[in-house]
Amino acid sequence: MEILEKNINNIDVVSLSGRLDAYSAGDLEKKLDSLFEAAHIQLIINFEQLEYISSSGLRVLLAALKKVKRQHGDIKLACLKPNVKEVFNIAGFTQIFNIFDTVETASKGFENA
């Protein structure tokens, strides 16, 4: 899995590509923790290039959301492929995360908050 990150108007957009499984979940956890330590707690995770997610990936996302919510931040998700979206649905994660069709609409979600 590759992780790219850029900051746009104080929102960090973290773009994932490849497979988010038990092997790569630790890399994402480290990346997100480094952002939280730098007080970056307004995040959009862009799933456009992410082909696969397992429960290990879901677990990292859930733990990260709990961390930022405690500091009144948020994580919004964008561009989930149908298979990835189905895993979110089955796991009940669509009720926990705000999910948007594009990064642009996700960032508007922060403006309106």
């Binding site: 429960s55 859930l62 709990k66 796991a91 926990i96």
Partner: peptide, 21 residues
């Protein structure tokens, strides 16, 4: 699965997915 963010436990999800899929 029905629990809200604060109460949601981190484990057991993989096995749940296996059984559902």
């Amino acid at each position: 699965l029905g629990a809200d963010l604060d109460k949601r436990r981190i484990g057991g999800l993989g096995i749940y997915l296996m059984r559902r899929l």
